[in-house]
Design a binder for these strands. Sequence first.
DNA 1: TTGTATGCGTTATCAG
DNA 2: CTGATAACGCATACAA
Lengths: 359, 359
Amino acid sequence: MSGSVRRAMPSIEIVAKEAGVSTATAGRALGGYGSVSRKSREAVQAAAERLGYRPNSLARSMITGLTHTLGVLVPDIENPFFSRALRGIADAAHERGWEVLLVNTDEDLALERKALGVLAERRVDGLVVAPTDVADRDALQAVVDAGIPIVLLDRRVPGLDADTVGIDNRAAAKDATERLLKLGHRSVALLTGGDEKLRPKLSRPGLRGVERLAATTVGARAAGYRDALVEAGVEPRPELVSAEGFRREDAAAATRRLLALPDAPTAILALDSLLALGVLQALRGLGMRCPADVSLVAFDDADWAEAISPPLSVVAQPIYELGAEAGRLLLDRVQGSDKRFTHRRLPTRFIERESAASR
Amino acid sequence: MSGSVRRAMPSIEIVAKEAGVSTATAGRALGGYGSVSRKSREAVQAAAERLGYRPNSLARSMITGLTHTLGVLVPDIENPFFSRALRGIADAAHERGWEVLLVNTDEDLALERKALGVLAERRVDGLVVAPTDVADRDALQAVVDAGIPIVLLDRRVPGLDADTVGIDNRAAAKDATERLLKLGHRSVALLTGGDEKLRPKLSRPGLRGVERLAATTVGARAAGYRDALVEAGVEPRPELVSAEGFRREDAAAATRRLLALPDAPTAILALDSLLALGVLQALRGLGMRCPADVSLVAFDDADWAEAISPPLSVVAQPIYELGAEAGRLLLDRVQGSDKRFTHRRLPTRFIERESAASR
DNA sequence: TTGTATGCGTTATCAG
DNA sequence: CTGATAACGCATACAA
């Protein structure tokens, strides 16, 4: 016999009664506010213990106006980038006594809008969002106007009253491209993973106008890619820029198409690690070797990057820190900071391994 | 000028006043319960729209006794197994109008206990837990006794009143081991990833007694591994069973140790994909080739498994389905099901690729 | 130090 | 169909 089974949770009123004091005193004894005599406190604590009392945080939130909950909106929790960033956010939150309400938006604008509404109804104290599309500005701004601060992760939304955390995508892509150029490659392909909407914008002669896309991650990286080429006196060729989807199979197909081109690329820059996997898979299928036949550099230092043959050279983002910083920034706002909105760019690190070689 | 900026969220009382009706009527008009005249409804809806009204779900939960929130406790959200399972849980939840409150327990028992308390205080309607340790039975049972149903994911806790979802670890490990044996391997190592606590239990002559560990994932798989060996007439050698940590470096170190053994293993069964990465990395460092020198089979079909050279043969778990099923089972309980507790075992699939070859 | 009373924003009950 | 009013469980101002 290990204690009786309680079905319903006792309220503070029950505890108070059991301890022979008023609810106010019980509240003070348990909540640690106000002042209580030692005798009362002990009686209350004993009663609470006996009854298995747990304060109802809903009731508390109604009074205090704080739910101690952060909403997190990400496009795809399975993506290692976001699961690692989420970890950073969650750690930062827990450290200061907050919990995380997670919603997967699946890159779906309608779902994202609905989620924003739901999280607002739940009165989350703040929101970390990796928005699906810049087009969601109004829905996001509405949440901010309702008094819920937002921190944008990885992606920016021009004109939104929010802090943002990310990397300097343009500079990072430029740096990676320059390294490939320095290795003697003249025909460098860019695997963006973007979708159809992006394709026309990436196909202008000489990639003119990409800088106007710089608000998006893909756009900024494409701009950096072009910057490097132009500075090196290499004419950017739109047919070497692929935007055929972000799945591994998409990347494999894109790779096959690229390598079948006249004057085919001798190096590929992939904008994330899943795309790099597609490239590797296509190369295997084609019987080509990396880096002997094609050099490869990818964004994000996946856990497998160092273990495969050849080990992959990558542009490593401080993903965990990105998330943690977003969480901290948000909690600062929640706790009343009214500093100007900041746009934190964390440094990236190029990790040279063996997948990119000179030709 | 795009509408005025509201700082505080209006309550239903404000909306009612604006629409010229009572709060009760406003509530009915917005909540869709009871009956309201068309005229009132339209007036209320217009007012709500104008004021940007959002119902306060906290207040609603206080009344209805439902938070429409599922708590999810996982040891490590960065682990692809859990991030994919989480996706399944979240999808199942959203489908039925629930949200997910996520907590990372970091394989820390104290943290897990604390999280259980916090989630109980938040009055989550139910909990999906991948418990860190079987030892947490009492804390889990206390939550169940408080009226919050629990579904266990991936791991079991004997004696706990909860549904469980997972695979048949013993059978899956036995099958994988048998395949290695059929390829002619006689010296097969098992990389468990377990920690020090496990080591003594795995080092008895002939692996006797492992079946008593079968409640844990590692224990069950070790038992399956032994089953296969014994049935094939191969004496299990404890020194071929490693439990030196679940990080990649741990696996790499373990691999080096194993391969330095007299009568070294010619095949390795790794209990998750991160461990497999460690094996691969160690082999590269040793200048050994897979599968020519050492065959490798791992649990979990990581996204890179098919893309690397050689493509990895794996025991694939239906991870997403595991999560989704856990979510559905839990929601059934939340919505009043009082069927007997079920222990759902989903089928695994062996995917033969090229990392395991005959010798 | 303690107790009483009020309010947070809903839903639910019950007259009218 | 509508409105007043009582919960829900807690925190807090105020009085004792």
